[in-house]
Measured scan of single mutants.
Amino acid sequence: TEYKLVVVGAGGVGKSALTIQLIQNHFVDEYDPTIEDSYRKQVVIDGETCLLDILDTAGQEEYSAMRDQYMRTGEGFLCVFAINNTKSFEDIHQYREQIKRVKDSDDVPMVLVGNKCDLAARTVESRQAQDLARSYGIPYIETSAKTRQGVEDAFYTLVREIRQH
């Protein structure tokens, strides 16, 4: 089974770092803004072998026109913010609204991801993020692309959301 996953969120929150940590098991430290990259990885989730087709997208506003296209083809979405960047957390709402509009559905598989949880300088409390996820009816997972904490959990949870859909 193949799953088309799309990673969305503001610029600099760590979308590529999360994806590369999942696929290649290493942490990319330097920031190089993405336009669009796709990665494929075969994994076993709950005993089922599946192929993850992951689209890593641009957070930069100037590429926002490309969003409709990949939102149409994606089956599930990782909505990523950084726990030390309140603005990126506030941006999640717009991504969710755009996904709902493009998919013409209120019920699209999504996982809210709070990345950079290895950093002490948190400005978005776990509780705020949990409340937001609960209001959307989606899971919330904290990750660190640096330490790998929660990385597999985030992507695998999204696959489970798609399966249950």
Rank of each mutant, 00 (worst) to 15 (best):
L52A: 11
N85F: 04
K146T: 15
K41L: 10
T86H: 12
I141W: 01
G14T: 00
L78P: 01
V6M: 05
E125V: 13
V28Q: 11
T73N: 06
R40S: 02
M110H: 00
L132V: 08
T49R: 08
I92C: 05
F27K: 06
A121Y: 04
V44Q: 07
G47M: 01
E75I: 05
L51C: 07
T19M: 10
R134K: 06
K41Y: 00
M110Q: 01
R160F: 10
R40D: 01
G137V: 09
E62N: 14
R96A: 07
S144H: 15
G12A: 14
Y39S: 00
G9I: 00
V44G: 05
G11P: 14
Q130H: 03
D131Q: 12
K103R: 02
T157Q: 14
R101D: 05
L132I: 03
T49A: 06
I23F: 14
V6P: 06
S135L: 14
E142F: 10
Q130P: 09
Y136K: 13
D107Y: 04
D91R: 15
G74Y: 06
L22D: 08
L55P: 01
V108E: 05
L51A: 01
K146A: 14
V43T: 02
Q24W: 04
D104P: 05
Y63M: 12
V113M: 12
Q94L: 08
T86V: 02
V151S: 14
A129M: 00
V6W: 10
V124K: 11
D37F: 00
R72W: 04
R134A: 10
K100A: 10
E48A: 02
R122S: 13
Q69G: 09
G59F: 11
L52K: 02
S64C: 11
R148C: 14
K15N: 00
Y156M: 10
A82C: 05
Y140R: 09
L132F: 06
D91H: 09
R72L: 05
M110Y: 02
Y3K: 13
Y3Q: 08
I138F: 13
Y63I: 10
V151N: 13
R72N: 05
D56A: 00
D29G: 09
V151C: 10
Y31Q: 11
F89E: 07
A17E: 03
I35G: 01
A154D: 01
Y39V: 03
Q69W: 08
F27Y: 03
A65N: 07
V28G: 10
N115G: 14
T1Q: 05
L51Q: 09
M66K: 15
H165E: 13
R72S: 06
D106P: 07
N115A: 14
Q21P: 01
A145N: 15
P139F: 14
I35L: 10
K100G: 01
D106G: 06
H26F: 10
N85M: 08
S38C: 09
Q60R: 15
S64Y: 09
R40Y: 01
F89G: 03
A120F: 11
A58G: 15
Q60D: 15
I20E: 05
E125I: 11
D56I: 00
P33I: 05
N84D: 09
R160T: 12
Q149C: 04
M110N: 01
D106H: 07
G76T: 08
Q164S: 13
I141Y: 12
A154P: 13
M66F: 12
T49D: 01
L18T: 01
V124N: 13
Y39I: 00
E2P: 02
V111F: 00
L51Y: 06
D106W: 03
V6A: 04
V13A: 07
G59W: 13
P109W: 02
E62H: 15
I138R: 04
I54H: 02
G150Q: 11
E97L: 03
T86D: 05
C79Q: 05
T73W: 04
I20M: 02
G9F: 01
R127T: 08
Q130F: 11
V113C: 13
G150W: 13
V113A: 12
E2N: 07
S64K: 10
E125W: 06
R67S: 14
R72Q: 06
P33D: 01
Q130V: 11
V102G: 03
I54N: 02
L78E: 02
Q21H: 14
T123L: 07
V44E: 05
Y39D: 08
T143E: 13
K100S: 06
K100C: 02
E62K: 15
I138P: 04
S88E: 05
E90P: 05
L18K: 10
Q94S: 08
I23V: 06
D131C: 00
I83L: 07
Y136V: 09
G137E: 13
D107M: 06
K100E: 02
Y95C: 07
V43N: 06
L51M: 05
I35N: 14
L51F: 02
D32E: 15
L18G: 03
K4I: 01
I45N: 06
A121C: 06
Y39G: 00
C79S: 01
Q128I: 13
Y63H: 14
Y156W: 10
E152W: 13
I92Q: 01
T86R: 04
R134L: 10
P139R: 12
D37R: 02
